[in-house]
Design a protein around this nucleic acid. Structure first.
Ligand SMILES: [Mn+2]
Ligand SMILES: [Mn+2]
Ligand SMILES: [Zn+2]
Ligand SMILES: [Zn+2]
Lengths: 139, 139
DNA sequence: TTCATTTCTGTAATTATTACAATTATAAAA
DNA sequence: TTTTATAATTGTAATAATTACAGAAATGAA
C-alpha cells in the first residue's frame, strides 16, 4: 500500500476539504488498517472529539469512498468495514478470532472466460477460515 | 453446478426434514439462480403459500446454510443474497442493471503467499462493473 | 387419542443506516 | 470588522434488515 505522509495534503489532493473531523477519521483509518466498522471508529474517536456525531462518521466515510480514498469491505453482511488501502487486495477473515488479514493476489491469474467482455470496475476477494495463530492454539 | 433431481430427497440427504415450506423455498432457490434476497423469496412465494411468514424464510435459509445446501452471497452490504449453488464460483454484479452473473475461476491459480499456512474454509470472489448488455446499450 | 417434539407464525425488539432539519464553522464580500 | 453565503457537523427521527421470542400448528410416536 502506498504510504501516506501528510493526511491533510492527501485529502486536498482527493478534492476533500480537510476539516478537523475528516482529518481525524482518515488518520484513524491509516493507523488502524484492521478494517474498522463505523461503530469502532466512532467509539474510538469520540473520547478525543466529544462533539463527534456518528452521522458524521457515516457521511465522511461515504464521502471518502466517493472520492476514492477509502474502500468498503463486505465480508459479513450487517457489518460494513472500511479500508484506506484502496488497492485491489484480498482479505482473510478468521472465523475463530475474527481478525481480518490482508493478502495480495494476482488478478490476471484468474483468467475468467464467462465475463470476458464485461467492464470490470472492482475486484473483491475474501477468504474465510482459521488463521495460523488460531490453528496452532487448538492443538 | 450439480443438478438436483428431487428436492425432497436432496433435503433428506442433507439431514433436513422436508416440510412443505422448506421444499418450496429450496425449489425456489434452484429455479431462481439469480441470487434472490429474503424479500424476493418471500414476495414470490407468499401468493402460493398465503400463511408463509418472513421469519420462516429467514430461519429456513439459515438452516440451509448450516446444513451446507445454500451459500450466502455478500456483495452489497444490507442485502444478503442466497445461492443454492454451493460450489466455489465467482459473481459479477452489474452496476447498471443490477444483475448478478455467475462465473467460474481457478482457485488454485491464486497461490497466495501471505496466508499459506491458514486453513481455508470458503473462498468468495466478486467483481463489480458493467455487463456486456449494458455496455452495448450505452453506445 | 394423547403426548412430546418439531416446525411455523406473528409480533416485538434490535441494529445498521439514512433522511432531514437545525446548528455551527468557514471563508469570501462588503 | 461585520455581513452574508456556503459547507460541514450534529442530533433526532425514520427506515430497513434481521433476530428474539412466545404461542399456534403440524408431525409422529406411544
Ligand atoms: Mn485491506
Ligand atoms: Mn452463484
Ligand atoms: Zn484467528
Ligand atoms: Zn447490466
Amino acid at each position: 500500500m502506498k504510504q501516506i505522509q501528510n493526511t491533510k495534503t492527501h485529502l486536498i489532493e482527493a478534492g476533500i476539504k480537510p476539516s478537523y473531523q475528516r482529518i481525524k477519521i482518515f488518520e484513524y483509518l491509516i493507523e488502524n488498517l484492521n478494517h474498522p466498522t463505523v461503530d469502532m471508529i466512532y467509539k474510538d474517536l469520540v473520547p478525543y472529539i466529544p462533539t463527534l456525531s456518528k452521522t458524521t462518521v457515516y457521511n465522511t466515510l461515504k464521502f471518502f469512498v466517493d472520492k476514492g480514498i477509502t474502500q468498503i469491505i463486505n465480508i459479513e453482511n450487517n457489518e460494513t468495514r472500511y479500508d484506506a488501502d484502496t488497492s485491489t487486495h484480498g482479505h482473510f477473515k478468521c472465523i475463530k478470532c475474527g481478525n481480518i488479514y490482508d493478502f495480495s493476489f494476482n488478478e490476471s491469474n484468474l483468467n475468467i472466460k464467462q465475463i470476458e467482455n464485461f467492464e470490470i470496475k472492482q475486484t473483491h476477494l475474501y477468504i474465510k477460515g482459521v488463521c495460523e495463530k488460531c490453528k496452532n492454539k487448538n492443538n
